Simulated assay, not measured.
Amino acid sequence: MEKKKIFLASSSELVEDRKEFEIFINRKNKDWIDEGVFLELIVWEDFLDAVSQTRLQDEYNKAIKESDIFIMLYFTKVGKYTEEEFNNAFNQFKSTNKPFIFTYFKDAPVTTGNVNKNDMMSLWAFQEKLKELGHFYTVYKNIDELKFKFNQQLEKLVNAKFIELKPDGSGQAVPVTITDNSVHQVHYGEGDNIGHDKITGK
Rank of each mutant, 00 (worst) to 15 (best):
E190I: 11
D192G: 02
V15Q: 13
W124V: 14
S11F: 00
A50L: 15
W32I: 04
N97Q: 14
S182K: 15
I33H: 09
D119G: 04
L130Y: 02
D144P: 02
E22A: 15
F21C: 00
E85S: 07
K62N: 07
L146W: 07
Y137A: 05
F150T: 09
E164T: 15
E85L: 01
F102S: 04
Q153V: 12
L48T: 11
T103W: 01
Y140T: 04
Q53W: 07
N159H: 11
K94N: 04
R27M: 12
F105I: 05
N118P: 00
N87A: 13
G189T: 08
K117D: 10
G191D: 04
A173H: 15
G36E: 06
I64G: 00
W124L: 14
T76W: 05
Q127C: 08
T96H: 10
G113I: 00
I178K: 09
F93N: 07
N61F: 15
V186T: 13
V186E: 13
E84M: 14
S12T: 12
K19W: 05
N88T: 15
D49I: 01
H187E: 13
F162G: 07
S122F: 03
N142I: 00
F150D: 06
L14S: 09
N88Y: 11
A173W: 13
N151Q: 12
Q172C: 08
P175M: 10
R27E: 15
K129G: 04
F136L: 12
T138F: 00
M1I: 02
Q153I: 13
S182R: 14
L8D: 05
D58S: 08
L8E: 01
V15Y: 12
E164Y: 14
I178L: 13
A63D: 02
K62V: 06
S122W: 03
F90C: 02
K30H: 08
K62F: 10
V43K: 11
V110S: 06
I194S: 12
D31G: 05
F70M: 07
S10K: 00
H135S: 00
D107N: 12
K129V: 05
G201A: 10
E35A: 09
E132K: 12
L39F: 09
L157D: 04
I6Y: 03
Q185K: 15
K202I: 13
